[in-house]
């Protein structure tokens, strides 16, 4: 999503640059004609086209600004949502009465780390981590790792994350 918006703003910028350069060349040429023959039909036509070009640039600037502001709002919304998700996870861990060590392991497991990686990070034996994971699955009443992760994804899909 953010990438698509990024591409959109890049395309809008490229469009704006090309249009402004074209407008500069056209207006420069039109000014010469205007000085030579201020009331001729050719001059009037060129002034009209020049105005249209400038109007296009103004619209382009407005569109680019809107896209950038929307991108920033979305980033802020995502940050809020991920903060809210962390809160949801935290309170759920409390409901399950996970010990501090189990909380850490559960978080790392949710982040997608495997047993060896968690053991390495925590400086513990893999056996310990495996035992902790088993306790976590027991306390949360899930069958295993996949279901444990799915628990929160379901939460994410089901309920509104950001308090309204």
């Amino acid at each position: 999503m953010a990438n698509a918006k990024g591409r959109q703003s890049a395309a809008l910028t490229a469009f704006l640059i090309i249009q402004t350069v074209a407008a500069a060349f056209f207006v420069g040429d039109a000014v010469g004609d205007l000085i030579a023959d201020p009331t001729g039909p050719h001059s009037i036509y060129e002034v009209f086209v020049a105005l249209a070009l400038c109007l296009g640039i103004v619209f382009g600037i407005v569109a680019l600004r809107r896209t950038l502001v929307r991108m920033r709002d979305q980033e802020a919304a995502i940050a809020t949502a991920s903060g809210a998700l962390a809160q949801v996870i935290d309170s759920q861990f409390s409901d399950w009465a996970l010990t501090p060590a189990e909380r850490d392991v559960a978080f790392l497991a949710l982040k997608g780390l495997d047993v060896a990686e968690i053991a390495g990070l925590r400086g513990a034996a893999s056996g310990t981590v495996r035992a902790q994971l088993t306790r976590i699955y027991q306390k949360s009443g899930v069958s295993g790792r996949a279901q444990f992760a799915a628990f929160f994804v379901e939460d994410l899909l089901g309920a509104a994350l950001v308090p309204t």
């Binding site: 640059i17 500069a24 640039i57």
Partner: peptide, 16 residues
């Protein structure tokens, strides 16, 4: 002239 276009565009961007 390309420089003119870029400067004008940047100054307009500085306003809005």
């Amino acid at each position: 002239w390309i420089g003119i276009a870029l400067l004008v565009l940047r100054l307009a961007w500085g306003l809005v």
